[in-house]
Computed example of a mutant assay.
Amino acid sequence: MKALLSKATGGPETLSLDELPDPRAGTGQVVVAVKACAINYPDVLIIEDKYQFKPQRPFAPGGEIAGVIESVGEGVSGWSVGDRVIAVTGHGGLAEKIAIEAARLFRLPEGRSFEDGAALLLTYATTIHALLDRGKLTQGQTLLVLGAAGGVGLAAIELGKAFGARVVAAVSSEEKAEAARAAGADATLVYGPGPFDKDASKALAEQFKAAVGPNGADVVYDPVGGDYAEPALRSIAWEGRYLVVGFPAGIPRLPLNLTLLKSCDVCGVFWGAFAARDPRANQAHVERLFRLWGEGRINPRVTETFALEDGGAAIAKMGARQVIGKVVVRI
């Protein structure tokens, strides 16, 4: 089989397309013929050894796949050759085939493409866990979404609206603001590029405050970090919840006096650990996502596709923060 491999620490330019032996299904595993693999920000980090997990090299990046079961190992029930599936794999998805534990599979609904299926789980499952379990978002509350035109950002807009919130989308360009409005955002704002000095940070805080309204944001969804974090925190409501989702702009340092003044919570969101620790709760979330998908209330936005040999270019585009929605590698 062909696989796009990371053999040494570095950027997307270090990846190479190689031939590997076909995987075999071990006990409790299936082999999936991968048809599509979505690209996410962890793929940028994992090949640079900056992610929390560091697979042994050589490995293929790509942590979110859709495909067809090719073979079934011992001890597996409920799955058959030919079943269409989706899964979050962590890595290994940029390959023609992958062996994966059957317990990590979800059935791809009929009528849904492999590209859309590959783009669903990581962003939407992260976001539903963030908004409901960590953010306690309820109907009528205000949700501020940073990086709102990315995969998790658009998911937060759609799920926020599905849960009855007023959604304010913060983005870095008017093109991204249009994508956020198309996803259902009630209001948008365009912020400038960081880093910010003290005056620019204060101005951004005022921009956030004006957008969310005088009562502040009940929930702030932050998959960006960096110099955007403190201004966003300054716009939070009394007893609001600030959700720490990711750091493509850098790991921020928040002044903790703000949490006292607003009596607010800063909440980490680590969906992978949540799914492993509480698989039943995660299963319930995914089933709810499928229902919302079937009702047309959420819809993964695949804005560009790449061939396997061009998977490095897809990762580079993600690293440059040029992606609106999701990009997917077809295999």
Rank of each mutant, 00 (worst) to 15 (best):
A162L: 06
V76C: 08
G26N: 02
G216H: 03
A273Y: 12
G192K: 15
T89F: 01
Q139C: 05
T303K: 02
S113G: 09
I100E: 13
P42R: 06
Q56M: 14
A313V: 12
G111N: 05
A99M: 10
V244N: 08
V72P: 05
D227R: 01
I324M: 07
S6V: 14
I324D: 01
D133K: 14
H91V: 10
K326E: 03
Y51Q: 03
V152M: 11
I98F: 09
F106R: 15
T259Q: 11
S173A: 04
L261T: 15
T188N: 09
A237I: 00
A95Q: 08
V323L: 08
M1Q: 11
A307Y: 01
C37F: 03
V212G: 00
A182K: 15
G26P: 00
V266Q: 02
D227T: 07
A38N: 10
P252N: 12
P58D: 11
L308P: 07
G296S: 12
A118G: 06
G226R: 06
V171H: 03
G90C: 00
M1K: 09
D22V: 05
Q139L: 00
L260Y: 13
A38M: 09
S80E: 13
G240M: 01
I46N: 03
V152K: 07
G82M: 01
R84Q: 11
A155L: 09
G73F: 08
L144T: 00
A38V: 01
R181C: 12
L122Q: 14
A60H: 05
A155W: 03
K209R: 14
K54S: 15
T127P: 01
V168Y: 00
A118R: 02
F196I: 09
